[in-house]
Design a protein around this nucleic acid. Structure first.
Lengths: 394, 394
DNA sequence: TAGGTTAGTTTAAAGAGTAAACATACTGAG
DNA sequence: CTCAGTATGTTTACTCTTTAAACTAACCTA
């Protein structure tokens, strides 16, 4: 329990309970009042009164009644988010590009758009403009006013002030007050967070992390990042620090990293490394190689391809083993480049990971690929709004 | 919030509130009802009724009234743990040795003892016997029955089953059901956990981590271990995994570790490394060197001593920087060997740590030495009982 | 001694969850 | 077709807890 947690008053308790009902729905899918009562361990009467409020507020709606079981009984009426419940506006700010989407309260993608902007304009006005335009466009696609805006940033941010700290490929945006600008311009509550953490929120609310207390959401490809879910909530250090797992030292006597240090995990497990190795091994398309094509080369028994795939798996597993030894998330959900390589790579990563850690009765950690395709981040930005709006600290 | 959290009923709310009052006292020290009311944001009436129960139960007692401020007013009566409140029995199981202590509810050490045992007897009966004897002895030193037993284990454990998984220097104890044995033999609820995590609980309840939402408690010396406090609670992976930070890879092309892998943090930041380097540099007493004597050598301008101290600080900082990059605890509390080297080493570690991480508006992480002397683990074992008994997940 | 200030308690009221009974709506055997 | 059985959802009387406001207690200063 966080330090200085307020005492629980009846009204706070009911607020928390309302939020937990919502969360149980997100974690499990549509549920009848009786199912909710069993799941949460309270009486059907209580669930009835709580859900009545949520239905009155237009957040939830009763679905068509489901057939009774063979034993008989009154058919249950599943509850789920109402058609016209407030949706959520989400965006992903990348160097030069903005993606935005409107997500329904239930987690379906209602609309999606993108904008390009000039990264070089100091002050970052074009980025804010692109964000505002994209969000205005998708906002118009919904029938109700969004409950808020969530933005994922491909760089370091200060979640307290809602501003960008540093984006390596877009230094002109450093210090940009994204949340402040959007909340005043669009008159909606706005939250921002770093990309891997938002991605983890996507897994937590809508993906394989649903209902789980702990897991690690890993992004691989041109960079490495991690979002850690601990105790059901995504972990944030002071001001939103943490998750910069790409720049942890794994090879003290290795190659210099672009960040200025030596042997960061990124020096052995990103595209830059993969392409350099591929070039050395004389693989075709080395300069633009990614994990997917590499796995296909390996499947076709191309010389050295399987070898390189193994090394890539081993290098990814090194950092994951470090995470396991420290945090023991129990589950790694992989996003980005690695996913395209499919089971070939997943199995190798899992194997290497299990080799690199001592046995424990709790069993070895699992390695999974995301099932959210490329929506993970935009869904996660919606999860960011949900986490902040419902008063639960996910 | 953890998945599947139960809904809050009035009676659960009051239970949680009682626990939070207790925690506020631990975090802040003796407090009057009015101060508690201000701290927790509830009315004085509420605090009055909650504390009345705790006083009736014999847990809390009113201290002598404190003088009013210059503005006048009725003098406040500080509340603190009662003299005869149930104490806590705590123990630390090491290869060959058991330490045990009786800790008052308020966190003072009432009695302390130790036992030796034969590590080589397979089945581990002597260890259990030593634990039982030591705990029986210190139990007799208290006026009231202890509220429970907390045991720190110098090795890998399964916190779910309360048994030892593996202790490197005492393989005869593998699988030993410590909690089960003690709880039936001594008829007291018993919990066990790994040493660094227990140490972190000591910091959280009684040391520099008091009242903090997040920090890392690091043990240095013959081994490296970490206990992570996140959201006010100590972090446990499934079954109590995690914290094995000594065996995270930092030097992929480094020396082999006794665990079978290459370049673990322990290969560059423990006594083994320090002594090998000292030998190479021809420092006196190299074979038994620790950080304290090394710092004194460095202070006396002994050739190479300052150099070695710098390297030691740098090597410790490498793993700490990795922890900061992933988890950003904001504060590192150091225990063990390093403490004896004093500010000389602390400053160097902090300097090296700050060099190794990118700047952020939230400010750099702090490095502190424990103020709990060698009691940290035994106090932490008491904290383990407190965490489990009060229904808060610290 | 009076007025101001702070601590702690009392009391009536409001809000929330609960248990038990009840109404509703289905299944399936006879 | 009826009726017992079963499960869902709602109503009602009740308990528990916090709260606001008034009140008492104990101190300070002028």
């Amino acid at each position: 329990m966080a330090a200085e947690a307020p005492l629980i008053s009846p009204v706070l308790a009911s607020e928390v309970n309302r939020a937990r009902i919502m969360q149980a729905l997100y974690d499990t899918g549509p549920l009848s009042r009786a199912e909710l009562a069993r799941l949460t361990g309270v009486s059907r009467a209580t669930i009835g009164s709580i859900t009545a409020q949520l239905i009155d507020n237009g957040l939830l709606a009763e679905g068509d009644s489901r057939p009774s079981s063979a034993a008989g009984g009154k058919p249950s009426r599943p509850l789920w988010f109402a058609e016209n419940a407030p949706p959520i506006a989400s965006a992903h700010l990348l160097p030069g590009t903005v993606e935005a989407a409107l997500i329904s309260a239930g987690g379906t993608l209602l609309a999606r758009t993108r904008r390009e902007y000039d990264v070089h304009v100091s002050g970052g006005a074009p980025a804010l403009e692109a964000l505002t335009e994209a969000l205005t466009e998708i906002r118009a696609a919904g029938s109700a006013e969004p409950m808020g805006i969530g933005v994922a940033i491909g760089g370091m941010v200060d979640t307290d002030s809602g501003s960008i700290v540093h984006i390596a490929l877009a230094p002109a945006l450093d210090g940009l007050p994204v949340a402040e600008h959007l909340s005043t311009t669009l008159e909606l509550p706005t939250w921002i967070d770093v990309h891997p953490r938002v991605q983890a929120l996507g897994d937590r609310w809508f993906g394989q992390g649903r209902g789980r207390a702990g897991f690690a959401s890993l992004y691989t490809g041109e960079a490495l990042g991690v979002g850690l879910v601990i105790g059901g909530s995504v972990h944030r250090g002071p001001g939103g620090t943490g998750g910069e797992v790409g720049h942890t030292t794994v090879d003290l006597h290795g190659k210099p990293c672009h960040c200025g240090r030596i042997g960061c995990w990124e020096t052995i497990a990103t595209h830059t490394w993969l392409r350099a190795e591929a070039l050395e091994k004389g693989l075709p398309g080395a300069a633009t190689l990614t994990a997917g094509p590499l796995a296909r080369l390996a499947a076709r028994d191309h010389p050295h391809a399987a070898e390189l795939l193994d090394e890539y798996a081993r290098n990814l597993a090194i950092g994951m083993a470090n995470l396991h030894q420290t945090f023991a998330p129990g589950l790694f959900i992989l996003h980005g480049d690695a996913v395209a390589a499919g089971e070939t790579l997943r199995g190798r990563i899992e194997h290497q990971l299990h080799r690199g850690i001592p046995p424990h009765p709790a069993g070895p950690p699992q390695v999974a690929f995301t099932n959210l395709d490329d929506h993970a981040t935009l869904l996660g930005a919606a999860g960011l709004v949900l986490s902040r709006t419902l008063h639960i600290a996910i």
